[in-house]
Amino acid sequence: MNDDKWLLFFSDTQPRRHAVIRQVLSNKRTVSSLYWGMQYHILDWLNVEPELDEKQFDLQIDNLCEKGYLAATSKGLILSAAGIIQKKDYQKKSYIITEPSLFQHIDEKQWLELLPLLIQVISELSYHNHRYYVVGSSIRAQLFFKNWYQNIANKNDLASSLKQLLKLFLEHLPQEQSNIFMALFSGHETIGKTTEQVATMLPKFSHEDVVSLWRDLSMQFAFFLLEGDSNFRRLVVPLSTKEKLSKSALITYQLFNDNLSIEQIAEKRRLRVSTIKEHLLESAILRDDFVYHRLITTDDYSIMTSTFIGETIDWDYKQLDDHIEFFKFRLFQIERSKRIE
């Protein structure tokens, strides 16, 4: 794997990104990782690398330091001059996932098993062939698929509909990308190619590029189906969620919107006040409809507005001399950061 990929997430001025990058990519949610992920504008990448191994990642970062692309400062790692060039070079030459935010909304693991199954089964159906080896997929995915398939009233239109949808979806992409994408599937009398085989055929694409393209376009196609009203939409709906909040944070947020106070929520949910506050910070970061003035009074606002100027990320809580609690300060910081965005 190409370690240079991680350079995309580093900056030449903000040295504390290392751990945040790992936590955001692997969807390890803490208020701190979410907050800093937001400040570094990398929250769209939540859950894009769910299998990321901490040790492996750290080794790769060490490797980037050794190559001189990352430089150590007293506060952490920043991109060096060589690193900035290397990052640009990587961006130019590599396939970078274009819709990372979909990885928060669609169950990638399930979908990447279902999509090849869908294409193969419908392909064989169009030839009325029942004797074929089903593409590699877990029994779980097969059961899920079967359940969808059996509930379709009119199967005759499936092939033409899927063909049409794939055409519509693919014709907006660069042709080479569409060719790569389709080459990976198996269908009637055709065995697909592995990502590695496709990469060896194309000098401009590394194996990792092909894998990224495959994941990215598969997820985009899932979204495309979700937005439409075909039979296939029902296959994707159970795998998708619009909700960004974790389950527990969502319950807190709903109670908060029902006008309960933090203390009332804590009592009702038998959770600590500090936990409830964490849930609310998560909600403020991930939702765009958070009602800040329910927690920050007009007085708080006027004190903080007059105290802080400049970039929100540079604000120092100590300037408030303990007049306002940290929780409110952080909420205010989130609100202002989002306003600037």
Binding site: S126, L162, I180, T190, M201
Partner: peptide, 17 residues
């Protein structure tokens, strides 16, 4: 030499419509 096939050709051969 193996080379990639145009996606439209694949779509035509996959789905007999």
């Amino acid at each position: 030499e193996d080379s990639l096939v145009n996606y439209k050709v694949i779509l035509e051969s996959f789905f007999k419509t």
